[in-house]
Design a binder for these strands. Structure first.
Lengths: 204, 204, 204, 204
DNA sequence: CATGAATGAGCGTTCATTCAT
DNA sequence: GATGAATGAACGCTCATTCAT
C-alpha cells in the first residue's frame, strides 16, 4: 500500500475519533466525555483510540485547536467584510458572539483552554491565538494610522486587553443568559452593544 | 455544657473542615478535592464531614460564599478610600486584581461559580453578588450625577458589563501570567492599567 | 420519684420509639428504616434509642411482636363470631386477608419473621405464634369431634400446614396483586375463595 | 482468535462470576453478597465484573433465572415419571421439596423474586414461571378430563392457588425446620405429606 | 496496526453503633 | 438516665489506561 493511502486512512480514523468526541460532547457536555463512548461511537476499539491520541486530554486539545482555528476563520471573514478599522473590531466582537451562539461547544472549548492553564496546550494551539492577536493588532495599527484609535496605546497590549474583556463578556452572556432574559430592560444584545460602545469609546 | 459553648465547638469543626478543604485545594487545585483527604487533613472521620456538610458540593459552595464575602469586603474597603466615583471604580478593579493575586484560590472559586451555573448557588450566595452589583451601580450613578460618567448609559447594564469585562481581564492575567512576563514591554500592571484606561475612557 | 412513675415514663419512651419506627416504615417500607430518622421522629436522641433497644433489629422484633399480637387478636375475634368449626377456620383465613389489607406493614413484619429465620426471635414472640397454633388446633379438634373434619389428621400437624398454606396464599395475593387485577377472570377474592374451598374440602 | 473461542472464554468468565456469587451466597446468605467479595473470589478485578453484569442486581437476577430454570427442569422430569395427573401434581410438590432441600440457595432465590416484586425481573425470567404455570395447568386439565379433579375449578386459578400454597409450605419447612425436628410426632415429611393429602383431597 | 478484555485505584455517600459529657 | 457528636467500615459503581493477542 502506498504511503499516501496509509496516511489518508490514518487521517480518517483520527477524524472519526474527533467527530465522535465532538458529537458526544455536544450531547452531554464537555466534562462527561468518556473513552468508552468515544470508542463506541467511532466504531473503533478502545485501544485504537490510544494509537491516535496519547490520552483523553489530547482529544480535548485537538478539538480545542479545531475550535480556535474555526474562530480565527470567523474573525478573518468578519474583518474582510469591513473597511474601517473600528468597524472591523466591532465585527470581530460580533463574530465572537455569533460563534458562541452557533457553536457553544467550540466556544466552551476555547474558553476552557483560555481559563485553565492546561499543560497540553501545544505550540500549534498557541499559534492560532497568536494569529488572532496579530489580526487584531493589525487592525489596531490601521486604526491608529487612520486616527481613529488613540495612538498612545500599545497595539499588542490593547489586543491583549480586548481579548480578555471580550472573553469575559461572552462568558457573562453565556452564564447569565437566564438572568438577562428575566430583566425587563436587559437583553443579550443590549449588554453586547453596551460593551462594544464602552470599548470603542475607550480606545478613541 | 452551655449551649453557647456547643455552638462554638460546632462552629470550630465547621471551620476545621473548610480550612482543610481550602488547604487541599490550594495544594492540588479546585477539582481534585476529595472527601478522603478532607477527612484526613481535618483529623475528622469521613462520616463526620457529612454532619457539617450535606455533600462535597456544599463544601465548595461554602468556600465560594466565603470568597465572595471577602471580595465584597475588599471592594467596600477600596471604595471607602476614595471620594471620586471614577477613582472608586478604579479602586474596585485594582482591589479585584489584588484579591486575585493574594487569594488565587478564592478568586478561582468566585470564577468557578460565575462561569458554571451551579445548582447549589444559594440565595445567600446570590445576595453577595447583588450587593457587589449595587455597590457598583451606586458609584456609577454618583458618577453620572457628577457628570463624570456618560448619563446615557444605564447604570445596571454598565455594572453588568464592567463585571464581565473585569472578570475576563483577571482570568487573562491569571492564565497568561507566563506569556505576559515573557513579553519585553508587557507586564501585568501594564495590561491592567490599559484595561482601566480603556474602560474609564469608554464610559466618560 | 416513685418507681411506678419511672416505669411509666420508661414505657412512654419505649412506645414513642416504636411509634416513630412504625410511622417511618409505613412511609418508606420495612427496609429503609434507619436510626437517624427514628431518633428525629421520636424526639429522642440517637443514644437514647439504645437505652430502650439494644439494636435496630430489636425494634423490628418489637414491632413484629406487636403485629403478631394484633393478628392473634383478629383471629380470636373472628373465631368468636362463628359457632361452627369449619366456619371458624374460614373466618380465620378471612381475618388473615383483612389483616393483610388493613395493616400491610404489620403483615409484612409477620411474614418477615416467618420467612427469615431471625436470631432475634424471642420466646415472647414464639409464644404468640404458639397461641395462634393452639387456637387453630382447638378448632380443628372441635371440628373432628363434630365430624366435620377428617379425624385421621393430626390436629397440630394440620394447624401447621394451614399456617404455611395461608401465609403462602397471602404472599401470593400481595405480590401478584398487579398480575391478578390484570387477568380477566381473576380477582383477589376469587383466588382467596378458591384457596378456602380447596382447603376446607381437603380436610373434610 | 476465532470468534467461537472468544465466546467460550467470555462465557467462562460469566460463569466464573456467577459461581463466585453463588458460593458466597451459600456461605453468607442472599443479602450479604457484595461486589468486593465477588471480585476477590472470582479472581477478577472489580471493574471486570461490570463488563459482564451491569449491576449487582443483575447478578442476582441471573442466578434467580438459573434457579427457576432448574426448578422447571425438576418439575418436568418429575411429571414425566408419572402417568396419572394426580400423581403428577404430587410429584411436582415432592420435586419442589427435593429442590428446596438440595438447593436451598436456589430456592431462596426463587422465593426472593417471588416475594419481592423486583424491577429487574426480565421477560426471560417471567417466561420460566409461565412455563411452570402452563405445565401445572395442563396437568389439571388432564385431571379434570379424567374425572380426577373437580371440573368446576378454573385450572388457571387452581394452578395459581397451588403455587401459593406450595411456596408457603416450603417456606414453613425451611424456617421451622428446627421447630419441626424438636416436635415428637412431627417431621418434615409428615407435614409435607399432610399438605399433599389436604391439597389433593381438596381438589377432587 | 488493531483489538477489547482487564484493570484497580478512586469516588461520594450511608448508617448502626459508641461513648464522653 | 439522656445526649448527640463522632465514628469508620462498608458499599456499588466508574473510567482512563494498558497490554496480550
Amino acid at each position: 500500500m502506498p504511503k499516501e493511502k496509509q496516511t489518508t486512512k490514518k487521517q480518517e480514523k483520527y477524524t472519526l475519533i474527533l467527530d465522535a468526541a465532538e458529537t458526544l460532547m455536544k450531547k452531554k457536555g464537555l466534562y462527561s466525555l468518556n473513552m468508552d463512548e468515544v470508542s463506541y461511537f467511532s466504531n473503533l476499539a478502545k485501544g485504537t483510540l490510544y494509537l491516535y491520541f496519547r490520552s483523553k486530554e489530547e482529544i480535548l486539545a485537538a478539538l480545542a485547536l479545531k475550535a480556535r482555528i474555526l474562530l480565527l476563520a470567523h474573525f478573518e471573514k468578519a474583518v474582510l467584510n469591513e473597511n474601517q478599522p473600528i468597524q472591523q473590531l466591532k465585527a470581530i466582537i460580533h463574530a465572537n458572539y455569533t460563534f458562541l451562539k452557533n457553536n457553544p461547544l467550540y466556544y466552551e472549548l476555547v474558553s476552557f483552554y483560555e481559563i485553565n492553564d492546561r499543560e497540553t496546550e501545544t505550540e500549534e494551539m498557541s499559534a492560532v491565538i497568536l494569529r488572532i492577536t496579530e489580526l487584531v493588532i493589525g487592525i489596531i495599527k490601521n486604526g491608529q494610522l487612520a486616527g481613529e484609535i488613540d495612538s498612545r496605546i500599545d497595539p499588542s497590549i490593547l489586543s491583549f486587553t480586548m481579548w480578555g474583556m471580550t472573553v469575559g463578556i461572552m462568558q457573562l452572556l453565556k452564564v447569565k443568559a437566564a438572568t438577562i432574559s428575566n430583566h425587563p430592560n436587559l437583553s443579550e444584545n443590549i449588554v453586547l452593544d453596551n460593551y462594544i460602545k464602552v470599548f470603542l469609546d475607550g480606545i478613541k
